[in-house]
């Protein structure tokens, strides 16, 4: 992740907008100057990670629809608090220090690549999943050295469930319900509504 800086995403809003129209990464890259592109291996890693969190089922998974790139853009712009300084004791820890930016924030993508291991992408699918499951478990058990994963995972969920596929195929989407039904039976095929904004905000 060396050489990938905040400046890399000065045009990030445009980048994400392009995602909406065309999730293809190649389309994104054509709109960026060559020195602003995240390195291909970084994009590949985040795509693979996102796809392990939300894989293909009866609907496409996160990898195929560009969630990895959304995560990189989100990290560049501080979504999920990722441009805020981590606790001082963590910032000085060996696993964090190499990835601290000048503004005091952590380069989450660089940290993740190191945390998973430099050869993670070349591991077998089963091994990749095993490593990620371990990181996820550690983060949610409160291991501070795994804590940044929680923000990355949150961005994967946001990237997926606010996409057209995640929001309107995996879940239901109805911008104009037209009525409020206070008591509806849950059936085996009931899917939540991504347009239930109260649930999204406060659930």
């Amino acid at each position: 992740m060396t050489g990938w800086s905040r400046r890399s995403f000065l045009g990030a809003a445009a980048l994400v907008a392009i995602h909406a129209a065309a999730p293809s990464g190649a389309e994104v890259l054509r709109r960026l100057d060559s020195d602003e592109e995240p390195p291909p291996h970084c994009r590949m890693l985040m795509r693979q990670v996102a796809d392990l969190v939300i894989p293909d089922t009866d609907t496409p998974g996160a990898g195929a629809i560009g969630v990895g790139d959304f995560v990189l853009v989100g990290l560049a712009h501080g979504l999920e608090g990722t441009r805020l300084p981590p606790k001082a004791e963590l910032a000085a820890a060996p696993s964090f220090a190499p990835y601290m930016r000048k503004d005091g924030s952590l380069d989450h993508a660089g940290w993740l690549e190191a945390k998973l291991g430099q050869d993670w992408l070349s591991q077998s699918p089963a091994r990749r999943e095993e490593i990620l499951v371990a990181l996820d478990a550690a983060a949610f058990k409160g291991d501070p050295t795994a804590a940044p994963w929680r923000a990355i995972k949150a961005l994967i969920l946001t990237g997926y469930y606010t996409s057209e596929v995640g929001g309107s195929q995996e879940l239901n989407y109805e911008l104009v319900p037209g009525r409020f039904d206070p008591k509806v039976p849950v059936k085996p095929d009931t899917r939540a509504y991504s347009s239930d904004w109260t649930a999204v905000d406060f659930g």
Partner: peptide
């Protein structure tokens, strides 16, 4: 758990 809603009040 057997109940949900439709629409956003």
């Amino acid at each position: 758990e057997q109940w949900t809603t439709f629409g956003n009040r």
